[in-house]
Design a protein around this nucleic acid. Structure first.
Lengths: 138, 138
DNA sequence: GTAATCCCTACTAAATTGATAGGATTAATA
DNA sequence: TATTAATCCTATCAATTTAGTAGGGATTAC
């Protein structure tokens, strides 16, 4: 299951992208429009900022804005920040690889074999989708 | 993340498939060989039996065996039983569809759009992979 | 009838998720 | 400079899910 965190994060990013990049968008505005608990959304946007996807402006008339063009923001990056590793098991993760305690030989492990396939196909989607694709109304 | 339940279930199915279909395999044998807590594995194999993937024989010299040929057991079926819906959100699930409370219009939802893609690519893997593929040693 | 095996229900500890609370910090503007 | 409106940060918490454990009942081979 997709976590609420990721769902809210994607919705918020889409909202910001659709808004255009002239002025920063406030958390409160997004929360109200997208029906997201404001405090929860605050923490989500904070992690997106810390990870470099979003930038922010503090104080009055502050808010969040995209650090790059929507077409430059890949889902691989966004999903890794919000949802964590794309691989369903650490032993097939590109960025967070970890050997299984049990598995004596990965090449013989059926789970490993299957999860490599799943990882690759999912990765293929995320690599070829940007925030611009999500934000377009087609 | 893939649950342990699914991981153990897949390993057990692979073990049974590799064993050949002449005699039933006991839970204890699988648990020992694959380093899976026996009682936990018992409950997993039970759900696989109830869902029609496995069949069992009770009593002495009993155990579990495949109900069909490995090449006939699709990962779509196995994964749905073990891990639940393949879609990451209910609003893109083929078998467990549910409308989002928030989303007024799915066609405008960016999360929906992205998750359709992910679902399709994952489904493509599971539809084209059978237990025979997992069990082969190539 | 006894041993081995699946079957079933109930319980539980730990981790994760989805928040909420309260305030500190920063910046615009009157 | 005081006020207001924002982000930023830390801590806490209830509910749910996960990953098991416990104990015994039912069935079958021998």
């Amino acid at each position: 299951m997709l976590s609420k965190k990721t769902k809210y994060g994607l919705k918020a990013l889409t909202f910001i992208a659709r808004n255009g990049d002239d002025v920063p968008v406030q958390v409160g505005v997004i929360a109200k429009s997208e029906q997201i608990p404001q405090k929860f959304l605050e923490s989500i946007l904070l992690t997106l900022r810390k990870s470099g996807v979003l930038a922010s402006k503090k104080g009055k008339h502050g808010g969040y804005y995209l650090r790059s063009e929507p077409s430059e923001i890949k889902m691989t990056d966004v999903m890794r920040v919000l949802e964590g590793p794309i691989a369903m098991v650490p032993c097939v993760s590109l960025n967070y690889y970890e050997k299984c305690d049990d598995c004596p030989d990965e090449t013989l492990c059926s789970v490993h074999k299957l999860m490599i396939e799943v990882r690759d196909s999912t990765l293929n989607v995320f690599r070829n989708t940007t925030l611009a694709d999500l934000s377009s109304v087609d």
